[in-house]
Amino acid sequence: MLRIRAHQRYAVRRETRILRGLRLVGTGLLVEVSQEGCRIGCVMPADMLPEPVENGEMLVIAPEGAEPFEARVRWSGNGTLGFRLTRAFHHHELDRLIRTCRGEFDAPEAREYGT
C-alpha cells in the first residue's frame, strides 16, 4: 500500500524522555521525525509506565541533547507512540534535531561502539 505523506520523514535514533509537564511518564527511542510529527519506539510497556498515556494527550518530548518540544499523542501500539507536534518545526529546527539525533554533535568517544 502506497501512502503519500504531507511531510518527509527522517530516520533518527535518540534516547528520549516523555514528560507530562515536568513529571516523567516514560522513556523510549526517538526513531522518526518530520516537520509536524515524530514516532517513539521501545517505549517501556504501558503497564510499567508510572502513569498511562492516552490518545489526544499533550506531552513533552525531550530527546537527549536536544530542545524539548510539545506534541499530542496520535496513536499507540506495540511499544510505539506516534505524535503530532503542537507547532511545526521550522526547517532549521528540524535540521538541527535530525543532526543531533544522528549523533553529529556527540563527542567522538560517545559514538564509539564497544566501550
Score class of each variant (00 low, 15 high):
His7Asn: 12
His7Met: 04
His7Cys: 05
His7Ser: 10
His7Val: 00
His7Phe: 14
Gln8Ile: 02
Gln8Gly: 04
Gln8Asn: 09
Gln8Pro: 01
Gln8Lys: 15
Arg9Asp: 11
Arg9His: 14
Arg9Cys: 12
Tyr10Asn: 03
Tyr10Cys: 06
Ala11Gly: 05
Ala11Phe: 06
Ala11Gln: 05
Ala11His: 15
Val12Glu: 02
Val12Asp: 00
Val12Trp: 01
Val12Pro: 02
Val12Phe: 06
Val12Lys: 00
Val12Asn: 00
Val12Ile: 08
Arg13Trp: 15
Arg14Ala: 08
Arg14His: 07
Arg14Leu: 11
Glu15Ile: 03
Glu15Ala: 08
Glu15Asp: 10
Thr16Glu: 01
Thr16Asn: 00
Thr16Phe: 00
Thr16Ala: 03
Arg17Thr: 09
Arg17Ala: 14
Arg17Tyr: 10
Arg17Ile: 08
Arg17Glu: 15
Ile18Thr: 07
Ile18Cys: 00
Ile18Glu: 01
Ile18Tyr: 02
Ile18Ser: 02
Ile18Phe: 04
Leu19Cys: 14
Leu19Arg: 08
Leu19Ile: 10
Arg20His: 13
Arg20Glu: 14
Arg20Lys: 14
Arg20Asp: 13
Arg20Gly: 14
Gly21Cys: 12
Gly21Pro: 07
Gly21Arg: 12
Gly21Ser: 11
Gly21Thr: 11
Gly21Glu: 08
Gly21Tyr: 09
Leu22Cys: 09
Leu22Asn: 13
Leu22Ile: 13
Leu22Ala: 13
Leu22His: 13
Arg23Glu: 13
Arg23Thr: 11
Arg23Trp: 13
Arg23Ile: 04
Leu24Tyr: 08
Leu24His: 14
Leu24Pro: 03
Leu24Phe: 13
Leu24Asp: 10
Val25Glu: 06
Val25Gln: 07
Val25Ile: 15
Gly26Glu: 07
Gly26Met: 03
Gly26Tyr: 06
Thr27Asp: 03
Thr27Trp: 04
Thr27Tyr: 09
Thr27Lys: 06
Gly28Ile: 08
Gly28Lys: 11
Leu29Tyr: 07
Leu29Phe: 11
Leu29Pro: 03
Leu29Val: 11
Leu29Lys: 04
Leu30Ser: 05
Leu30Ala: 05
Leu30Lys: 04
Leu30Asn: 02
Val31Cys: 02
Val31Gln: 03
Val31Asn: 00
Val31Phe: 00
Glu32Tyr: 03
Glu32Pro: 02
Glu32Ala: 07
Glu32Asp: 12
Glu32Met: 10
Val33Glu: 02
Val33Gly: 00
Ser34Val: 05
Ser34Ile: 06
Ser34Leu: 08
Ser34Gln: 08
Ser34Cys: 12
Ser34His: 05
Gln35Ile: 11
Gln35Glu: 15
Gln35His: 12
Gln35Lys: 14
Glu36Ala: 15
Glu36Ile: 12
Glu36Trp: 09
Glu36Cys: 12
Gly37Lys: 10
Gly37Ile: 04
Gly37Arg: 03
Cys38Asp: 08
Cys38Pro: 06
Cys38Leu: 12
